[in-house]
Amino acid sequence: MSFVPIILLLMTQAATPPGEQPVAPYPHHNANAGATPFADARMWQAFHESAGVGRIVDDLVATNIADPRISDIFKGQDMVRLRRTLKEQFCYLLNGGCDYSGRAMAAAHADMGIQDADMAALVENLQAAMRREHVSFAAQNRLLAKLAPMRRTIVKQRDLDRRRPGG
């Protein structure tokens, strides 16, 4: 057995993008995005491509951290990384030709105690951001339909602490 592949893997991950905090290594895969991309190019256009997705994600993150219903959950987290990975995830799902380099939804949201009401708050903030970007209502709903099932791996996600006493 050789340690070289593992060391190589760790080295590629050690390159933390500027402005971000390092995270524990994890396997990179587009499947981490939690859904499969749309087949056609229409959704990417409906979201005004990378400029539009960039504005929507910046708006969403800014709204979330100012939203008293959920702001606490974002305190002390890496918002630079969140903006980058969210843009990648949306771009990947909207068939904008990106790869998603972030963590799986279960791993990214474990132990946060996220509840249904938090998920609904985030969806409302996303709807508002998409409206402000003038994304058509039909296109908004198609993206939301892809994101909605992620509730199962986000809300009350506690896989990682199942072995902890009293967890």
Binding site: Q115, D116, A117, E124, K156
Partner: peptide, 15 residues
Amino acid sequence: FPAMAHERRDGGKLL
């Protein structure tokens, strides 16, 4: 009601 292990909280349903 596994939810009971979490904070009880009213409201929050989508419109």
